[in-house]
Design a binder for these strands. Sequence first.
DNA 1: TGCGACATGTAAAAAGTTACATGATTAG
DNA 2: CTAATCATGTAACTTTTTACATGTCGCA
Lengths: 205, 205
Amino acid sequence: MSVEHSILAVLSSRPCSGYDIKAEFEHKGASLYWGLSFGSIYPHLKKLEQKGLIQTVNEEQGGRHKKIYDLTGEGWIELQDWIKSLTPSRVIRDELMVKMTAWEAALPNERILFIDHLKQRKKETEEMLNYFIEWPNNAHSFISEFGDLAINYGQKILKAELEWIEETIEHINQPAQPPTQDPFGMYPKIKDRRDKALKEIRVKE
Amino acid sequence: MSVEHSILAVLSSRPCSGYDIKAEFEHKGASLYWGLSFGSIYPHLKKLEQKGLIQTVNEEQGGRHKKIYDLTGEGWIELQDWIKSLTPSRVIRDELMVKMTAWEAALPNERILFIDHLKQRKKETEEMLNYFIEWPNNAHSFISEFGDLAINYGQKILKAELEWIEETIEHINQPAQPPTQDPFGMYPKIKDRRDKALKEIRVKE
DNA sequence: TGCGACATGTAAAAAGTTACATGATTAG
DNA sequence: CTAATCATGTAACTTTTTACATGTCGCA
């Protein structure tokens, strides 16, 4: 299970409180590659401490109470073992692409509407990319050689995505085209199924 | 919740059984952008039927029992509404990148080992890319204009990733470099923390 | 004095995976 | 005849999110 491992990974750069870890997942290096909510972080910290992989190195009880955790020797070993171990394949979950594959079956006459989705995606992607570009310039955080390579990855992928968005907006602004591939004449069949199903609602009403 | 919506999206192309839906999520268009297990699909189909968004259009009870579902009029409307609605931001979860950001803190003297991870990733990425390239040539499935654009997206991103992998393998084969950015002298501090923590284990033993 | 950021934590609900149970059909 | 694939479904478990409860600190 890699959630606890990713907490160990954050802790490797410096001792942190639960709140700090959340911040790292939100605003720093980890942000692009992982995310966790408070409701998940605090119980995991407790578990990791019970397992002896992390320990409380500083606890302020009076006033604002705050607990700083750091890796134990066992924690460092566990982190090293995890880092060396085989990485499971990425899981890609991209709702926009799922919508895209069903768009023409469901909304064949509203293709122009999809451009709104693309523009929203473009905005988000640009923000992420800016963040990546600014990061090495902000001089706030420690960036290792490998951290730098991970930044390059993000930049490269996001730039490719922006290119695709531009091309695709342009494409959709052109007149509609017949399906690229439709060996069994599915397109008219889908239209029939949809129209028939929608008509049944009207009959009921 | 978009899991049920992605099932509706699969059903929009043709009526399917639970097993077919699983196959779509594994081998077809949806595969790159979503995934679900049987344990999740069947209960969701039941729920969707109770909600009146899908219905059983064919049930073979004798012999091999099989239930084919199709969208109802309400299901089509629900799918249309979802497709038009704002899409939440992508969640990227990339374990390899998390490992990368912690690599030098945990394993500063084993940078060459990371090349194994990159080669594994390269293999996986190439397989996915081939799948994407072959897909429009297999003449098996219906590919709409938008479906084709979604395929372009996958190809573009995966090609950019392969380029990055090549560059990065080459970079790591060069001699190690000092941290790109280390305004507070973190690098030596991390080393001290790690060494101290690891020494404590040895004391105990 | 009131707001926003800092800070920890729990409980309930939601979501999904794994493992299991069951059985039919088909290709070699 | 046997292995792979087709096919549905449940139960236990794991995981994560959301919402809530609580309280401090610094600043305008």
